[in-house]
Amino acid sequence: MAGFDKRVASYEEAMEGIESGMTVIAGGFGLCGIPENLIAEIKRRAVTDLTVVSNNCGVDGFGLGVLLEDRQIRKILASYVGENAMFEQQMLNDEIEVVLTPQGTLAEKMRAGGAGIPAFYTATGYGTPIGEGKEVREFNGRHYILEEAITGDFAIVKGWKADRYGNVMYRHTAQNFNPMAATAGKITVVEVEEIVEPGELEPSQIHTPGIYVDRIIQGSFEKRIEKRTVRS
């Protein structure tokens, strides 16, 4: 890898260094904008005891759901874990630890983690089970709870276009958690639909600047739709 060229030649190389017990932060909302090939590579490597941070856990047989098949996930932080029968079963059997986290708090935990902010106060969850055991402070007559930032050993991200320096753009609502995830990994791996030459992306349109990105790979994507809804 020379200079700022972040490209890697294979998915094997893209996930080099991932080990059992590591924390992986994943972008995506439902099945939209998920790094599906990087997830497949984690499955192929058969690493276990992973802590996964992601808004959802995929569905049976797709997305992060495939990592449940061989019990590779020990703990997950997510805001919503419906739509997945295998997940429910492992949760009921205590085979997986689930830390349900409000969606905005989850996004901010990633953002703060990547931005060097160790913790932040939010009103979200005050007075609910989410706030139990957390530090409370009052600002201007309102109560807030202290939530801690998250960083990962790896961040896995799905982009639309990137240049080889690792500048990334996302497409439509496939953006979601990806920009925050990209900032919060010790090693951030981004898979995209197209890698272009530096200079082809308009600098002011870049969502994730290359400084956050360690590895870039171009892949092909199934992009499964969870709830196809059309108007008649």
């Binding site: 805001s79 919503y80 874990v81 419906g82 429910e88 689930v98 409000p102 969606q103 979200t124 989410i130």
Partner: peptide
Amino acid sequence: KLIKGMGGAMD
């Protein structure tokens, strides 16, 4: 019963 999560409702 089953717990699916709060999504964005708490925020």
